[in-house]
C-alpha cells in the first residue's frame, strides 16, 4: 500500500490535482496522454532512483505498482 500512496502523490503533482486511484484503476480511465505518462515515469524514477524504461505497456495502476516494487527490489 505504501507504493500506492506515493504514487498518488506523484500523480497529484503531475496533474496539479488530487486523483483518487486504486490498483484496479486503468490508465484509460485516468485519461492520461503520452506527456502525462512520460512525466509520471520520470517522477517515479527520480523518487525511487530506479529505471522503468520508455516502453512500459501497462493498463492498470496495480501493474505499475508491481513494476515499481520489482525495480526497487532489484536495486
Amino acid at each position: 500500500m505504501e507504493t500506492l500512496e506515493k504514487l498518488k502523490e506523484i500523480l497529484a503533482e503531475c496533474k496539479g490535482e488530487d486523483i483518487d486511484v486504486t490498483p484496479e484503476t486503468t490508465f484509460e480511465e485516468l485519461n492520461f496522454d503520452s506527456l502525462d505518462k512520460v512525466d509520471i515515469v520520470m517522477q517515479i524514477e527520480d523518487a525511487y532512483d530506479i529505471k522503468l524504461g520508455d516502453d512500459l505497456q501497462l493498463s492498470t495502476v496495480g501493474e505499475l505498482i508491481q513494476k515499481i516494487d520489482e525495480a526497487v527490489a532489484a536495486k
Partner: peptide, 8 residues
C-alpha cells in the same frame, strides 16, 4: 520543460 509541464 518538466518544471514548466507541471505548472501548465
Amino acid at each position: 520543460a518538466p518544471h514548466m509541464l507541471r505548472k501548465r
